[in-house]
Design a protein around this nucleic acid. Structure first.
Lengths: 246, 246
DNA sequence: TAGGCCATGTGGTCCAACCACATCAACTAC
DNA sequence: GTAGTTGATGTGGTTGGACCACATGGCCTA
């Protein structure tokens, strides 16, 4: 038969072998969130591969939001297991947008889809809604000058993510976050196309409060419609002028 | 002030520097899908970093479905830019499922959400529907024994992806594909819980044809309902027995 | 006892070599 | 002249070893 070496793994590249081992540890529950991977040198010796290959595997896991690497000693050091699906989805989408194989329009459309569903699905008494309400107050407090637009938008993102979280679906939340991240730069530029940021911000806030009120009133269907109109309206207002400049 | 070396990039780690450079090339259109990256050794020299760091960056891009690396010479060799968002999302979701921080139920729910939307959105004359129909014929042709269940399910996946493609949203298609990939192993095990695979497969096929007919009849709303019932019904049938065994 | 200092262990980076692979051109045998 | 072989070339794949920056903690000194 074939080799009886413990390290026979077919055509698999070395770093994939390491990935497979780590994924198995995760599936078997021998590695859990918060736990630490063996040190790179140790792991390399255990698996009979070079440290380089171990590092390549860890880099991939880092990019996928599965681990975090820290130098030095102490609690922040070492490679520890985390769970940040949004990071992976976000950078992936961002890069594919860069290759121009993921149209911005499709991203916006997907955002509307997910966010409408979340609004319809959110429970009226979800604790995330209180955070959302607090964010709205914070947004009222920021100035209405275009200089503060970035600050306002940052809070806006967190508000929408809070609504998504209120639906209680981790996958939808992660996807929502990644969609926002992937078009973050784009959305920022859009504000430059708005004729009057002050007016727009005030309108957005009014719509935000309507959406939140609908959810808290257990009128999911209405909330979903409001959310869709809210998002589409914003991109239409900013986007039309954007294309009109061309 | 600080160093005036051309390679001062703040706290960024070396491989991130390479990633940033490549992402900029993509955004600027200097690198497009189908294009080739400079050879690893060349790129390392150009950017003033080690080949190791270049390779770590490329590994990340590979995991994100942005490039494909091939050894040797000729058209298949070298590191070429591709665009496979599904690969990135799929492996990310799969790993996070392994960490048990993404409930399977949430993935199934999200799948229903996306697929219902796609069914409602698909155009009746979309060319992808012909591929879907061909897949259904192929599924009729495979045996009904449980031994062929894997083959049937593989075609089933492609059928559903074809429907998603018919909606014409690349982001939704990519997410759909990644969701299927992330629970592929899980779905396969479920068939073992079914009392009679033959009967189930025949029923699934009937539902498939109803869905396809509804889309072709331009009745998106009906198609969406059928799809939701189709997916939820399958998981309920297989899943209930699964938990009942415990 | 309080302070500084170094041993230790972590990831971060680099280098130099070697391998396997695929192509292509030059060369050789017929 | 043609067909086949062979080697040069260039690609990613892998390895071992060296050194660095960093953070801790214990030892040693004042």
């Amino acid at each position: 038969m074939w080799s009886n070496h413990i390290n026979y793994y077919g055509d698999m590249r070395t770093h994939q072998l390491v990935l497979t081992w780590i994924e198995k540890q995760l599936s078997d529950g021998e590695l859990t969130v918060g736990g630490r991977l063996p040190a790179e040198r140790t792991l390399a010796e255990q698996l009979g591969v070079s440290r380089t290959s171990v590092r390549e595997a860890i880099r991939i896991l880092e990019a996928l939001g599965v681990v975090r690497a820290g130098v030095g000693s102490g609690p922040e050091a070492g490679t520890v297991v985390i769970s940040d699906p949004t990071a992976a989805l976000g950078s992936a989408l961002r890069l594919h947008v860069a290759t121009q194989h993921l149209p911005i329009a499709d991203i916006v459309e997907t955002r509307v889809l997910l966010e409408s569903w979340a609004a319809a699905r959110a429970r009226a008494d979800a604790p995330e809604l209180e955070r959302a309400a607090a964010l709205l107050d914070e947004m009222d407090a920021v100035g209405r000058g275009s200089a503060e637009a970035d600050h306002f938008l940052a809070l806006d993102v967190r508000f929408h993510l809070s609504l998504a979280d209120a639906a209680g679906n981790a996958v939808v939340s992660a996807m929502m976050g990644s969609l926002r991240e992937s078009i973050q730069g784009y959305a920022g530029k859009l504000t430059a196309n708005l004729p009057d940021w002050d007016t727009t911000a005030t309108r957005l806030q009014a719509e935000h409060r309507d959406i939140l009120a609908a959810i808290r009133n257990d009128d999911g269907g209405h909330a979903a419609k409001l959310v869709a109109a809210h998002i589409e309206g914003y991109y239409r207002e900013a986007g039309v002028r954007h294309t009109a400049k061309a």
